[in-house]
Write a protein that binds this DNA or RNA. Structure first.
Lengths: 343, 343
DNA sequence: TTGTAAGCGTTATCAG
DNA sequence: CTGATAACGCTTACAA
């Protein structure tokens, strides 16, 4: 509203039209004591009649609270985050907040810029799926004195922050066990480069488990965009049959799809030549050819939990920080099978 | 920022620390004439040193421009919009704006609420994939005097507005021709209920084409959530083999997936018993079982085009309204085949 | 119960 | 080229 054209109605207009003072209007509108019941009704009614819409910029400036919370996602292209965003947006709306959602696109400098932009917009709190370790979130919280919650980020970080995450390490263990039981020995784990990886725990869990079984773990490092992942996986799969992995674990169905593409591009078949395990259970995963074995997680719940935890802390700063682990469930479909017998 | 804890640095602090006036600081910071080059550099430098972040609420209040543009999506669960959002967010960032993205979840009252919320936040412009006819967008633009652009919405609406859309009617025609050529006679078109449908043109085009061929069109009406679509399609497919459709056209791969599920649930096979045509070509569509025949569209381009058109009009209100049709491409895969010979 | 006035951080107008 | 000063719309002491 404001300036050009859109002749906005302000409290002053209401006050003038009723011959009372602005503060009376303010009090009446916000259901605060200090104003007669009858007058309040009149005010409410004329406000509606005049089409009054409060100017949040003014409120923000005055109160220091904007009613906006930020949601900074590291990669909005990953369908995983779709439902997270939806859940977050929904919960915010339910509790009277607006979400400001944006994507850092796995670019650290851009993440920094966005953080600053959000700060200058006086967000009341921040939820963030950080690019790397998540230190940025902690720094932001310290610097602004406002609550932050991290989503799917390394456990040790966080510090003072609330955190919502899926148990990625457990998922890796379950998947690895499944593959070992099928007879696989050369298993690959797809992960992001250390600096940008949100969950080093996956690698640790995987490495430990493989080592325990006397096997050497293959860690396939790639940027987590679909094209980069296809390239990295194609490179791995192009190796001789007795050296390349016979199964891969990915950190998301999104990347599992890339594994399908890579396999296809070098003429391998899933699951005959390559077993694939995803993580997320996207709506399409059951419809793929073959249906994807994956780890189902309630993505909407992640979003609502993050929003809820964040808003709790905004409204009661004493609220202790939360550590929420959203449960998941391993679902076995057609993309995993016994390894090929090429050796 | 602002009140609690986070001791924010204001222009006053910079001015005080330099022993000059606030207005000099303002001028210097915004690269405006009226301040010496040397002083400007000093100001810029101390601003950075002190960690100054401008308070957008104050700027907004003063100037009436927030630097925020709204993006109101009718259904954020549809992966189609993922890339649109990403493109929009990207273009906004590139041009120095913040996007405020939210989902009306196909609920008209919620759409209205959100529109009001965005208005009270003084967005500089609005992009909207409206629920029904898109009249709401026009009304908003008229009422606020600010530019709006509609995304994928009925052609006749729009009026004064810029519009970005895919040529859905053309896609329907192409798909229908493809099915007719394969020999299908009972073809179903999946569409949203009239009140919420964004593109009645699809139905018109389909009906006309079928009638021209002396065939009677089947229009399957359903709410466009995955579960609702599965139900509606299951009901259609449960009919006797000589009555039910042998092919369906959907308005999105998202809904085509629902057709796969529905077919599966009543024991029909795609494409042997049912041909399916989607629209969008989502990343997963080529990996489905069977790979989906669909209409590819550059979704990111829709987002960037919308943002670009919107920001153009914000910055030059004289800018004439744009009608952008993002091109698409029909891609034939494995989900369409000759009809079954059950008659 | 109601009105008055100050002030949030910024920009813009207008003197010096 | 620089510095007071008012104003944007709202909230909140405090005074009537």
């Amino acid at each position: 509203m404001a300036r050009p054209g859109g002749t906005s109605v302000t409290m002053r207009d209401i006050a003038a039209s009723l011959g009372i003072s602005v503060s009376a209007v303010s009090l009446a509108l916000r259901e605060r004591p200090g104003v007669g019941e009858e007058l309040r009704r009149t005010v409410l009614e004329t406000a509606k009649r005049l089409g009054y819409v409060p100017d949040r910029a003014a409120v923000t400036l005055r109160t220091g609270r904007s009613g906006v919370v930020g949601l900074l996602i590291r990669n909005l292209r990953n369908p995983f985050f779709l439902d997270v965003v939806e859940g977050f947006d929904f919960e915010c709306a339910r509790r009277g907040y607006q979400a400001m959602i944006t994507s850092s696109r796995y670019e650290v400098p851009h993440e920094k810029e966005l953080l600053e932009a959000l700060t200058s917009r006086a967000i009341d709190g921040l939820a963030m799926a950080p690019i790397g370790s998540g230190r940025a979130a902690g720094a932001w919280a310290r610097q602004t004195g406002k609550p932050a919650v991290v989503i799917n980020c390394s456990r040790q970080v966080a510090g003072e922050l609330s955190a919502v995450r899926v148990d990625a390490a457990a998922a890796v263990r379950t998947g690895t066990h499944h593959l070992l039981a099928l007879g696989h020995r050369r298993i690959g784990l797809v992960t992001a480069p250390p600096r940008t990886s949100p969950d080093p725990e996956r690698v640790t869990a995987f490495t430990e488990l493989m080592t325990d079984h006397g096997l050497s773990p293959t860690v396939i490092t790639t940027a987590l965009s679909d094209v980069a992942a296809v390239d990295a996986l194609t490179a791995e799969l192009a190796r001789p049959a007795d050296q390349r992995v016979t199964a891969v674990l990915t950190n998301g169905d999104f990347i599992a799809h890339a594994a399908y593409q890579a396999a296809r591009s070098v003429g391998l078949r899933v699951p005959r030549d390559l077993s694939v395990i995803g993580h997320d259970d996207l709506p399409t995963s059951a419809l793929l050819d073959p249906p994807l074995t994956t780890f189902r997680v309630d993505r909407v719940a992640i979003g609502t939990a993050a929003a809820s935890a964040l808003i709790d802390r905004i409204e009661a700063p004493s609220h202790s920080r939360l550590r929420i682990v959203v449960p998941g469930e391993f679902v076995v479909r057609g993309s995993t099978a016994v390894p090929p017998v090429t050796e």
